[in-house]
Computed example of a mutant assay.
Amino acid sequence: MMNTIIDITDPVLQFLESHRNTWTDYNIPFTDGVVLEELILKNNSKTILEIGTSSGHSTIWLAKAAEKTGGKVITIEMDINRFEKAERNFKNAGVDHLIDIKLGDAMEIIPTLRENFDFIFSDATWNTQQHDGYINFFKKCEPKLNIGGLFTMHNVTDGYGDDGRFFDYLKLLGNFKTHIIKASTAGISVSEKLY
């Protein structure tokens, strides 16, 4: 990853630091937030989509990066309680102007989005009974991912995410280059769309 210079006077970072050990509701670890920010900055991503807002920890990291690239974040959450917590957290962190949060089922919302994206972060939980859920999710996103864009997914090494079918599907497609970053036990897969 990049050697990021940390600005300790950054009010968003101060918010994240002050809440570092208080996030619940399936939010990502702090270390994974740092990874997401670095990926966006390295790739100068401006159009960012997040699937699975929870109460907004990862979204704040995405918005922190988007502010530096001149970008914006669209995030989707289906649980009303987490949605409302996230809205409050965005305002308290001072990044609400960078975020468009949508309430509903991402599988229904994604096809309605007009934007194409430079960066997609999937942190949604699928029912384990659903066959090929992560693949079906990816199929909704892939047409909206720009060439050179990154599709990232959380929980790829801790047993909460995909069981391997998603990565097998990417290999079959042949136009994605994938690696895994393990800053935490959860792991983040990073798949670049080559063509």
Rank of each mutant, 00 (worst) to 15 (best):
F15V: 04
I76F: 00
T69N: 10
L172F: 13
K42E: 12
I40G: 00
I60K: 00
K177G: 12
T59Y: 02
G159E: 07
T22C: 11
I5T: 13
W61Y: 01
L13Y: 12
Y169R: 03
L36T: 03
D132S: 01
F166P: 03
G187D: 04
S18P: 06
S58L: 02
L113W: 04
L62A: 11
G161Q: 06
T24V: 15
F167V: 03
E192T: 15
D100I: 15
D132A: 08
L103P: 03
K144P: 06
T69A: 10
N146H: 09
G56L: 01
D105H: 09
L170M: 05
T47P: 04
Q129G: 10
K193L: 09
T178F: 07
L98C: 07
H131W: 09
V156I: 11
I188T: 13
L98E: 05
A124W: 00
I8R: 15
D32H: 06
V73Y: 02
G33H: 07
F90P: 05
T112Q: 09
K102D: 05
L16I: 03
A65W: 08
G133R: 00
I48H: 02
T31A: 15
H154A: 04
E17D: 12
K177C: 14
N44A: 14
D105K: 07
E37D: 13
M78N: 13
S55N: 14
D105C: 03
N43V: 07
Y169P: 03
S191Y: 05
L13R: 08
K177L: 13
G187V: 00
S122D: 14
Y160R: 15
N146Y: 09
A65E: 10
I51F: 01
N127C: 05
I181V: 14
N81L: 12
V156G: 07
K42R: 15
Q130F: 02
M2D: 12
I60C: 00
F151N: 03
L16Y: 05
Q14C: 06
T24S: 13
L172E: 15
N27I: 10
Y134R: 00
V156K: 08
K68D: 04
D132G: 01
L49H: 03
E77R: 02
D123H: 08
F137V: 01
V190Q: 02
L49D: 00
K46P: 11
I5W: 11
K42S: 15
D79I: 06
I74D: 02
L39W: 04
I188Y: 04
Q130R: 07
A183R: 04
L173M: 12
F166C: 04
